[in-house]
Design a protein around this nucleic acid. Sequence first.
DNA 1: CTTTTCACTGACGCGCGTGTCAGTTTCGGT
DNA 2: ACCGAAACTGACACGCGCGTCAGTGAAAAG
Lengths: 201, 201
Amino acid sequence: MLAHARDVFARRGYHDANVDEIVKAAGVARGTFYLYFEDKRAVFEEIIDRFIAKLAMSILRVDPRDPNRSVAEQVRENIRSIVHLLLEDRATTKILLSDALGVDVAFDRKLHSFYDEVSKLLEESLREGQDLKVVEKGDVTMYACMTLGALKELVYQVVIRDWDTPEEKLVSEVMTFLRRGYLRVEESAAPAKKLPRRRAS
Amino acid sequence: MLAHARDVFARRGYHDANVDEIVKAAGVARGTFYLYFEDKRAVFEEIIDRFIAKLAMSILRVDPRDPNRSVAEQVRENIRSIVHLLLEDRATTKILLSDALGVDVAFDRKLHSFYDEVSKLLEESLREGQDLKVVEKGDVTMYACMTLGALKELVYQVVIRDWDTPEEKLVSEVMTFLRRGYLRVEESAAPAKKLPRRRAS
DNA sequence: CTTTTCACTGACGCGCGTGTCAGTTTCGGT
DNA sequence: ACCGAAACTGACACGCGCGTCAGTGAAAAG
C-alpha cells in the first residue's frame, strides 16, 4: 500500500495525485484506504517520515579523535550512506526533494526542522573541524548550507534525469568538491587576501 | 495585481493560495481577475516567467580572453547579479525555489528546461575554463550541478530564514567555496591521488 | 450449520474553489 | 448632457475529489 502510494506520488506529484489513483494502483477499494490512513496527507507523511528517519539514523557524528578512522574517511562514509539511501529508493527521494515542499504549512515546518537538524549537526562538526585545522576558517552555517544544497541538487538531478552514475563516483565528486572546489583563479578585487598560489595543471 | 498575487503565493504557497485571496488582496472583484488572466495558473506562470527571464538576461557568458576583466571578476559578477536579483525580490524567489516545483507536469518541464539552460551555459564555461587551466579537471556536469545547488540552497535559506546577510558577503562565500572548498583532509583510501599538502591555518 | 466478527467495498453526499456572465458603474467622445 | 464603449462586479452553477457508512462476503467461533 505504502509502496503504491509512493509510486503514484512520485509519478504525479502530491497535489495531482488523488486517492482514487492510489487505491486503484494498490488494487483495493476506496474505503479500505481510509481504514489504514487518516487521509491522503497522512500516507504522504508516513512515507516521508520513515524516509527521513532512516536518513537521520544513517548520519554519524564525525569524531576527529577516533584513532581508527580519519576525518576524511568518516566524512566520506557519511556522504556514502546518504547517497546510498537516496539512490536506493529513487521514488521516495524524488518525492522528498521535489514534492514535499508546498504540501502544507505544518509539513513545511517539519521538513525545515529536519534540514535544520542535519544542518546543525554538520555545522557542529565543521566548527570542531576548524579547531583541529581540518576545516578552513569561515562561516560554518554557509558551508553547511552550500554543502547540503550541492548534495541535494546532485542527487535530485541523478534521480530526475535517471542517470546511472555509480554511487561511488558521486561520493568522490562531492568529496573532491568539498576538499578543493574547482575554480583556480586569482581574486584581484575585494578582500584582497593573499593566498598561496597553486599550480593550475 | 501581479504584485499582490506574488505576495499571496509567497505567503501561502501555490496550492493553498486561492483566487479569492488574490483578488481580495488586490482590492478587485473576482471577475476582474479573469479579465486579465486565463486562470490561477496563468498568473503564477506570468510571475515566474518574468522572473526567470530577468535571471536569464543577467547571466553573462564568461569570456576568458577578455583583456579587461579577469575570469574571477566575471564569475564573481555573474554570481553577484544573480544574488542581487534574487534578494531584491524575496517573495518571488521564495516562490521560485519552493513552490514552483509541483504545480503542474508541464510547468515542471518548463522549470527544468530553464535550469538545464543555465546548467548548460555553466558547463560550457567550465569546459572552456578547463582548457585554460582555470578550472580543475573533472566532470563539468557535476560541478555545474553542485554549484547551482549550493547557490540555490544558500539563497533559499537567506530568504526563508530572513537573514540579513549582506549580498557581498554571500557572493564572497560562494566564490571562496568554489575556489577552494573547505575540507583540508588527506584522502587515504580510494583513488589515492597524491595532492600537494596545504597548510591548514 | 449458525452466529459473530472482521476486513473490505463502492455509491453517495458534501464542501470548496473555480470560472462565468448578466448586470452595473465609470469613462471618453461629441 | 447624452450615448456608447469599456472596465469592473459578485452571485451563481458546476465539477472534482474527498471522506463516509450501510452493506457484502469470508473467515473464525460456537
